[in-house]
């Protein structure tokens, strides 16, 4: 129990946030990804497909959560500053302009963890209370 509590505190510290400002989600990448942090603007650009490559040139593989999930709504508000409905409108316009398709949606944090664990170029986000196993890396989101 104590170990679990310490792990939660360590993850909160890694996310660079504490107390009331802590977002209710954690951003995760593959353990081998050298990235140490990400800005909110970069994260938004990645999830809106305006930023497609990691600094080393590899393609970013983006995993999103279900549009009906609470964590997706929280992520949209915190990172894009917009509702999920806005993001869906954004993607519909891109889809039906032939300009792009949205990130793949997975219907649970466990599936996002699994996908990121198996893909060195992946990024995802999970609910804060789902403790990420050691082979994915939690990265802090900077303002």
């Amino acid at each position: 129990m104590l170990r679990k509590l310490l792990l939660v505190l360590a993850l909160a510290a890694a996310a660079g946030v504490s107390g009331a400002d802590a977002p209710p989600f954690l951003v995760i990448v593959h353990h081998a990804n050298p990235i140490q942090s990400i800005t909110r603007a970069e994260l938004s650009a990645i999830y809106l497909e305006r930023l497609r490559s990691w600094p080393d040139g590899n393609e970013i593989h983006v995993y999103d959560q279900s549009s009906k999930s609470r964590v997706r709504a929280q992520f949209s508000q915190r990172i894009h500053g917009k509702s999920v409905a806005y993001v869906i409108r954004y993607w519909q316009r891109l889809i039906f302009s032939g300009r792009g398709v949205p990130p793949r949606e997975l219907d649970s944090s466990e599936k996002v963890i699994e996908a990121v664990r198996n893909n060195p170029h992946a990024i995802g986000y999970i609910e804060r209370d789902r403790i990420a196993p050691g082979d994915v890396k939690v990265i802090p989101v900077m303002p």
Binding site: I88, R89, Q92, R93, I95, F96, S97, G98, R99
Partner: peptide, 18 residues
């Protein structure tokens, strides 16, 4: 045969929720 980029709505037209 490509969607023509012209203004806000031309490419998507009335598609879906656009």
């Amino acid at each position: 045969r490509i969607p023509l980029p012209l203004g806000i709505f031309n490419e998507a037209d009335g598609a879906a929720m656009t």
